[in-house]
């Protein structure tokens, strides 16, 4: 997923090969990660898709099933991966992830510590940010989760950038061999204040820590602990509002007020790709936008702090 050299980048010349991980896109809210294996098939409500038909196609191609249903095959990215990975825990999503990666000043070459690993949603984005020569050390005390995460990292190809350790970070802290090595530390733990003193030891001078907690009581306790060794302590909440659009045509002479806005006739389609409308436009149409009615109301608070320079 993350190129290890210039030849790994997405290109017009690249074609899907046996063993590639592809994201099968049905709809923006319906995607699946599939490893391409000659001889395998993918079966969904649009029919049976033969992997052998996919090999040699370009990423981004539309491919058909035996009954002419279709899906798109996309190159995997950390954003797509977050949408398709199997949820073994609560995970972080794009808004929190992108904000914290920028705030933690993670750039290629950085060493980043993370706990817990959870489902590896954040880890994948951290790996992208430190590539090609940095490293992410991620720890979870749940043996099985750590093993599944390792398998996932292998599958997405970020395994060279990530080491997964099994360890009780709240109880034992991060391992001593990482003392003073970390440019940034990220905590997503139930009692982060227990891990903060150890995190402080791992950070390089002026390094930054981020702790993600759903509850304000957790934030409160973390901040009290942070005061001792950290400065610039700031807490944020970030949410995304998404919008849906609709095309309407103004029609004169109908409706009570003499004007009315009508959706243009909708073409029957195999499946609607995005929310919105198909158009056979003629005449004056406008596109209108409104926020989607349902959204995530809360994910967690992100608390950042910088190690004091003594």
């Amino acid at each position: 997923m993350i190129p290890a050299d210039p030849s790994g980048r997405l290109s017009l010349l690249r074609r899907i090969q046996e063993g590639d991980l592809v994201i099968v896109y049905e709809r923006h809210d319906h995607m699946k990660a599939v490893k391409v294996i000659n001889g395998s098939v993918l079966q969904n409500r649009f029919g049976v898709f033969k992997h052998s038909d996919w090999i040699g196609k370009k990423f981004g191609s539309k491919v058909f099933s035996h009954k002419k249903g279709f899906v798109y095959l996309l190159a995997p990215t950390p954003e797509l991966w977050t949408l398709v990975l199997s949820h073994r825990t609560q995970i972080l999503y794009i808004a929190d992830i992108s904000f914290l990666v920028m705030y933690l000043e993670i750039v290629p070459g950085c060493v980043v510590l993370e706990s817990g690993t959870g489902s590896g949603s954040l880890t994948t984005s951290l790996a992208r940010a430190v590539a090609p020569m940095g490293h992410v050390h991620t720890f979870d005390f749940h043996e099985q989760r750590a093993a599944s995460a390792r398998e996932d990292f292998e599958k997405t190809g970020v395994n060279k950038l990530v080491t997964v350790g099994v360890r009780d970070i709240q109880g034992e802290g991060f391992p001593d061999e990482l003392i003073g090595q970390a440019d940034a530390v990220f905590l997503d733990l139930p009692q982060p204040w227990l891990a903060i003193p150890s995190a402080g030891k791992m950070l390089k001078a002026d390094g930054i820590l981020c702790s993600f907690s759903p509850c304000i009581e957790q934030v409160q306790r973390s901040c009290e602990t942070l005061e001792l060794k950290f400065t610039d302590i700031r807490t944020f909440e970030i949410l995304l509002r998404t919008y849906e659009i609709k095309e309407v045509r103004a029609e004169v002479g109908e409706g009570d007020d003499g004007f009315s806005l009508r959706s243009p006739p909708r073409k029957k389609r195999q499946h609607s790709t995005e929310k919105g409308s198909a158009v056979e436009a003629s005449g004056a149409t406008t596109v209108m936008a409104k926020p989607c009615s349902e959204t995530r109301g809360h994910t967690g608070y992100l608390t950042f702090a910088r190690l004091k320079c003594l």
Binding site: Y25, H28, Y72, L74, A95, F99, I216, V219, Q220, C223, E224, I233, R234, T235, F236, E237, I238, L239, L240, R241, T242, Y243, I245, E247, T273, E274, G276, A278, V279, V287, M288, A289, Y301, T303
Partner: peptide, 30 residues
Amino acid sequence: AECMHNLQREKIAIGLQISEPWLREYQVLP
């Protein structure tokens, strides 16, 4: 919104989404 609509119509892009971040900072004190 118009660009998204046109991209849909011309079928040259998928996974289209318009989003707007909302960011709030907290004062955390006892």
